[in-house]
């Protein structure tokens, strides 16, 4: 693997391999010595054009636990916002000898541009681009599901037969997109539920089903319910009348949560709007994987960095 730009181009085999390596990384996280020497001498740059402390810290922990040197380049509020281009920034990183670049960018496709422009030799990891993809988030979601479903027997397995419901602002969600490609590749059945205004106009080519009625969808007894974050700015785009109506119609409130079997996993990519898309009771329940997702994020990102940066660059993996 030379870059990790999206889940769409991942085969089942590649995804399972990454998840299996993440299992090894997770085992290391349970030891007293949590660090591996694997990427000693390699430099990983966290290039964040958009604020996300959570994601940056997760990647930083992953890189440091593999003994890479980490440089945080927060491009927000720096010369970048004063007109320095992606190209100039990339050339700076190249001059610094970056082996890996973890990029978060508000523009869809920016990681692909960075990886294919010829400006840098580094391996590129997409840490979220616009409303396009967020592959490591989907991988950690899949990892979390697989562990809950199969426990110690997870290695080598996919998510065959698991039924996953993704609820909310699919239109603007890179997490939803990455999951919509990855989970079906691993054998899961995915259903998207949202107000029609928050679904893309045409999802016929997506390997998922869509619907508008959350209660009906929950009645089909999914194994996983993933609630997406509603961004404050959507309130002003006439996507739905107001937050009260949204919460009543598409929120995982107490009544809906109580009606779920206690084996149903409740997921959220965070940060949560409690009381809007998810009620506190669901978020804090044992069924909620929110805290595991954070820990698993480090393991999955270690696996991704390992696959990108440990081999000879350009050699077929």
């Amino acid at each position: 693997m030379n870059h990790l730009l999206g889940t769409r181009e991942l085969s089942r085999e590649q995804a399972v391999e990454l998840l299996d390596i993440a299992e090894d990384m997770a085992a290391v996280q349970e030891r007293e010595v949590k660090k591996l020497p694997t990427l000693r001498g390699k430099t990983v740059v966290n290039l964040f054009f958009e604020d996300s402390t959570r994601t940056r810290i997760s990647f930083e922990a992953a890189a440091k636990r593999l003994s890479a040197d980490v440089i945080n380049f927060s491009a927000k509020g720096s010369s970048v916002s004063k007109g320095e281009s992606l190209k100039d920034t990339a050339q700076t990183l190249q001059a610094m000898g970056a082996d890996g670049v973890v990029i978060r960018h508000p523009a869809s496709g920016a990681p692909l541009t960075l990886a294919t422009s010829g400006w840098i030799d580094a391996g590129v990891v997409n840490a979220g681009d616009g409303t396009h993809e967020h592959p490591t988030q989907a991988l950690l979601d899949a990892f979390t599901m697989r562990r809950r479903l199969h426990g110690a027997a997870s290695r080598g397995r996919g998510l065959d037969g698991a039924r996953v419901l993704i609820v909310g602002d699919v239109l603007h969600s890179r997490v939803a997109r990455s999951n919509a490609w990855l989970l079906p590749a691993l054998g899961a059945e995915v259903e998207l539920v949202a107000p029609p205004t928050l679904l893309p106009v045409d999802t016929r080519r997506w390997p998922v089903t869509t619907s508008y009625d959350l209660d009906e969808a929950l009645g089909r007894r999914p194994d996983v319910v993933m609630m997406l974050r509603i961004q404050a700015e959507r309130m002003h785009g006439a996507f739905f009348p107001n937050s009260r109506e949204y919460a009543r119609t598409w929120g995982l409130d107490d009544a809906r949560f109580d009606a779920l079997p206690d084996t149903t996993m409740v997921m959220h990519p965070g940060p949560m709007n409690r009381g809007l898309e998810i009620a506190a009771r669901a978020a804090d329940s044992p069924q909620s994987t929110v805290r595991e997702q954070v820990a698993n994020g480090v393991s999955v990102r270690m696996a991704a960095l390992y696959l990108l940066l440990s081999g000879e660059r350009g050699a077929a993996a």
Partner: peptide, 21 residues
Amino acid sequence: IDVTMYRDDLSRTRTRTPQPT
């Protein structure tokens, strides 16, 4: 005990798949 992550020749060959420890 898997030693993949401790090898000194990782960047000289194609990516190795680690095994469980």
